[in-house]
């Protein structure tokens, strides 16, 4: 199949950037979307042009490195699919595909389709952990965790940190990312001691970088791991309790 690709090109953070159009011919339907970009990049290189920079790593949908806006959708048209797992059979011969980097004030464009998502690390550093120094852990089976709680915690923990939730949100909110980690840890008995301090710190840090939730639900629809916005509700509830609980604390 033949594809017309409108790709965002930007030389660096201070460059204005613009769309450029490329014809990609003889695309196989079995190619992944990123392999189509690989093929185009090899051609550009041989033509003496600079290849399109994009992030990707595991190419099996688990590392969260890849992610671009494809025809206005984060990770493209297929639900529950990261960009690397999107195949060209999702498109038709002759299609024009527009590719753009994730956009948010906190996600600075580094080059072409590559953005800086380090704000996510700052949120985790603020409280996305259980304080347990190596060696101090008790016997693993000492604390039973009801199966359904463990399963729900896992649903939240499945987050791959790709940033699609922010990219898809009209407010550039990172509620789904933050809520998934807050909920994963708050749900487990191991994480309950730090529940309120964690929630407060993570949410407060999140709000230094990102917008607020207006309950559009776009994040859930874009999430390659289909994490539910119910976790956002859970985080909101814990945040009220946290502010009450932590009142007067230095």
């Amino acid at each position: 199949m033949n594809i017309t690709l409108r790709a965002w090109r930007q030389e660096g953070p201070s460059d204005e950037g613009r769309f450029e159009t490329y014809q990609v011919s003889d695309v196989s339907a079995d190619m992944s979307f990123l392999e189509m970009l690989d093929v185009l990049n090899e051609r550009l290189t041989l033509e003496g042009l600079e290849p399109i920079a994009f992030d990707s790593d595991c190419r099996e949908g688990i590392c969260g490195t890849c992610g671009v806006m494809i025809n206005g959708r984060a990770h493209g048209p297929q639900a529950a699919t990261a960009t690397c797992q999107l195949h060209m059979r999702s498109f038709r011969d002759g299609d024009t595909i527009t590719v753009e980097p994730w956009r948010a004030a906190a996600f600075e464009v580094i080059r072409d389709l590559v953005v800086d998502r380090s704000a996510f690390d700052r949120i985790i550093e603020a409280g996305g952990f259980i304080t347990v120094a190596t060696g101090s852990a008790p016997e693993a089976n000492l604390t039973p965790v009801p199966k359904e709680i463990a399963e729900t915690a896992f649903d939240a923990a499945a987050c791959i940190g790709c940033g699609a939730c922010v990219a898809a949100c009209p407010n550039s909110a990172a509620q789904l990312f933050t809520a998934s980690k807050v909920s994963h840890l708050n749900l487990l008995p191991q994480g309950s001691s730090e529940r309120y301090i964690r929630t407060e710190r993570m949410v407060d840090t999140m709000e230094q970088f990102f917008g607020s939730c207006t309950n559009h639900g776009e994040c859930e629809a874009a999430c390659p791991k289909q994490i539910s916005i119910d976790f956002i509700a859970m985080m909101n509830r814990d945040y009220v309790k946290a502010k009450l609980n932590n009142r007067g604390r230095a």
Partner: peptide
């Protein structure tokens, strides 16, 4: 806040579920 946090896409947006 949301205005400041957001950067507009230059290409088309295709909202999936927002009502």
């Amino acid at each position: 806040l949301n205005r400041r946090a957001n950067t507009a896409y230059r290409g088309p947006r295709d909202l999936a579920v927002a009502s």
